[in-house]
């Protein structure tokens, strides 16, 4: 047993939340397999932060400090991890199904001649093997996946796995993996307007559909979202109508989201939309049509006019 690896994800020298989710999930898997978690940290100036991963269950950290790794690149990261993995032969490599992780998984699996299961929502150990669950068809069906090769590459859907502090400490070992050619350069970073939280990372989403009637009406959703510390999403019809940017789209051809709270306003609940938000922890539907399919998915249904209920709810939250 060569252990379970986690690839830490960092931006600007700080670990992202998904890193702690991945280490915590890997710890459970490693316990089931009777082995340990090794975190792989790629970046620059992260030595002190690396030791902190012990808190979440990492026994060891392999830390590659290189200016070439400070900013993520598919080729640099895939080459570095593959080089380290070839030397140690881990059983599994786990990381977040973030934009970075989703990009890395395929290239890394190809390099290591294995396969990958992405955006997984549950992991278990059965008979000494990792049993993987992942939604497919945007959640219309769930697949139990087996990877019959090592290392098993597994990426985790953000905000699904709990962060558990085990209070351990990790020994940090410095490594210098071979990087090879990096043919993609990051030339600029354009900030999102107003530092908006991405839908895939949001804990609370207030979403609007065709019932919003026009772009300007989304201001009442912005007000509610801002009061709740959440972010605004939209259905495909709202995006196709040009009321919201496509990055706001939730659904099968948009983003699949798993917030703690999803408030659907004036969304009828087309099958593609339900697929994209159906695994949110708590769902609220606000729609004046009592027969709207969205109500069948909701934990709390409000049959009422969103133009009256939403501002009233914003006022209630302020109290």
């Amino acid at each position: 047993m060569a252990g379970v690896w986690v690839i830490a994800e960092q931006r600007d020298g700080a670990f992202r939340k998904i890193t702690f989710e991945a280490v915590s999930a890997a710890k459970k898997v490693a316990d089931g397999l009777g082995t340990e978690v090794t975190a792989v940290v790629l970046g620059s100036g992260l030595e002190a932060a690396s030791a902190d991963l012990g808190k979440y269950g990492a026994a060891k950290v392999l830390y590659a400090d290189s200016p070439e790794l400070a900013v993520y690149s598919t080729e640099g990261y895939a080459a570095a991890v593959a080089d380290l993995a070839k030397a140690s032969a881990p059983d599994a490599i786990i990381f977040g199904a973030s934009m970075q992780g989703k990009d890395l998984a395929g290239r890394l699996a190809a390099k290591l001649d294995t396969s990958a299961a992405v955006d997984c929502t549950a992991l278990a150990v059965e008979g000494g093997k990792i049993a993987i669950t992942r939604p497919i068809y945007a959640g219309k069906v769930y697949a139990q996946v087996a990877i019959n090769a090592a290392p098993q590459i597994i990426t985790l859907r953000p905000n699904v796995f709990d962060i558990v502090e085990t209070g351990g400490s990790a020994a940090v070992e410095k490594v210098s993996p071979a990087l090879g050619a990096i043919r993609v350069k990051q030339v600029e970073v354009l900030a999102e307007e107003g530092g908006k939280i991405d839908l895939t990372e949001a804990m609370i989403i207030v979403s609007g559909g065709r019932g919003m009637k026009e772009a300007a009406n989304f201001s009442i959703l912005e007000a509610l979202a801002s009061q709740l510390g959440g972010t605004v999403g939209a259905s495909r019809s709202a995006v196709d109508a040009g009321w919201r940017h496509h990055t706001d789209q939730v659904g099968q051809t948009g983003k699949v989201v798993t917030p703690n709270l999803y408030i659907a306003c004036g969304i009828s609940g087309a099958i593609q939309h339900l697929a994209g938000m159906g695994s949110s922890k708590v769902i609220v539907s606000i729609n004046k049509d009592p027969d709207a399919p969205i109500h069948t998915k909701a934990d709390f249904c409000v049959v009422g006019d969103l133009f009256e209920v939403v501002p009233a709810l914003t006022d209630e939250i302020k109290k």
């Binding site: 598919t74 895939a78 990009d103 395929g106 290239r107 190809a110 990958a116 068809y137 051809t253 699949v256």
Partner: peptide, 14 residues
């Protein structure tokens, strides 16, 4: 939009 994996692009490039 069926298996929702997105693995083929980066693997194909490799």
């Amino acid at each position: 939009v069926d298996d929702d994996a997105g693995l083929v692009g980066p693997a194909l490039a490799e």
